[in-house]
């Protein structure tokens, strides 16, 4: 199992990576910005993508559109965001996100959701 985490918050990413590794969810690859994420996505197939909305260079929503429209992949995508405004959530789902988690979140809850998606 390969998981891509895209977020520019190093501390949070490091924590998530530690959590996932500890729970044996699979190999975790980290992209600190949207550009790096795009490059990784082009070269590798992932089983799950977790992305923040606000990142340098490309937003999480752009990344979602990129995976669905350009790469034509149905990789599960979980969108993370500090702003859980109705409009943003709806837009995320409409362009193809599988789940939406509002920051602040509980790492355990995230792990459970990830497990459920990976089992499918």
């Amino acid at each position: 199992m390969k998981i891509l985490i895209c977020d520019d918050d190093e501390a949070l990413v490091s924590m998530m990576r530690f959590k996932f590794t500890k729970e044996n969810l699979g190999e975790v690859v980290v992209a600190p910005d949207g550009r790096e994420a795009k490059n990784l996505l082009r070269s590798t197939e992932f089983d799950l993508v977790i992305t923040d909305i606000h990142m340098p260079f490309h937003s999480g929503l752009e990344l979602t559109t990129f995976i669905r429209e350009e790469l034509k992949r149905d990789t599960p995508i979980i969108v993370l965001s500090a702003e859980g405004l109705e409009n943003t959530v709806l837009q995320a789902f409409e362009i193809g996100a599988n789940d939406f988690i509002t920051k602040p979140f509980s790492p355990s809850e995230l792990a459970v959701r990830v497990k459920r998606i990976l089992k499918r």
Partner: peptide, 15 residues
């Protein structure tokens, strides 16, 4: 600063 940054993003037991 590190603790605060993490706390802003986390809830529940972690926070």
């Amino acid at each position: 600063s590190q603790l605060i940054r993490l706390k802003k993003n986390l809830t529940g037991t972690s926070a």
